[in-house]
């Protein structure tokens, strides 16, 4: 086994998320899966910023704090702030759509919705 355990964690989390999207018919659960998937990526990024033996990137009177040779990289954290915002927006929109679908179809199970749509199309054709 090579690589840092944190990468493997991220990959496992990612797979769990993707699997949920694929395997669950419930639209709300799909959104949850999507969330897991995104969180995994956020963790991957955040872990990148960590520099071994590094400290928080704050200058102490123009110098590195006592006993540290490096700073950790702050940029990935900053990037992930944006990604989290995107994730929140996506989740909100997804859930809003799920609510509207529930109102219109009376269910949030995708297989049932597909059947209802197909029946509608056959009726028209």
């Amino acid at each position: 086994m090579s690589g840092l355990p944190i990468y493997w964690m991220a990959i496992v989390l990612m797979m769990v998320g993707l699997y949920t999207v694929i395997a669950r018919d419930n639209l709300v659960k799909k959104i949850m899966g999507l969330n897991l998937f995104q969180v995994a990526v956020i963790m991957l990024y955040v872990s990148m910023g960590k520099v071994e033996e590094g400290t928080a990137p704050i200058l102490d009177h123009g110098h590195l704090p006592e006993g540290f040779q490096h700073f950790s990289n702050p940029l990935p954290h900053v990037l992930m702030l944006t990604a989290i915002v995107v994730g929140v927006a996506t989740t909100a929109l997804g859930l809003a759509l799920a609510v509207r679908i529930k109102e219109e179809y009376g269910t949030v199970e995708e297989d049932e919705i597909v059947l209802m749509d197909q029946a509608l199309e056959r009726g028209e054709g």
Binding site: L18, V21, L27, K30, I31, L34, F37, Q38, T90, L93, G94, L97, A98, R100, I101, E104, Y105, I113, D117, L120
Partner: peptide, 15 residues
Amino acid sequence: RALRAAYSYLVMGTI
């Protein structure tokens, strides 16, 4: 059906 289309697009687009 527009809702379902938007939802599918949302999931695929996010992936």
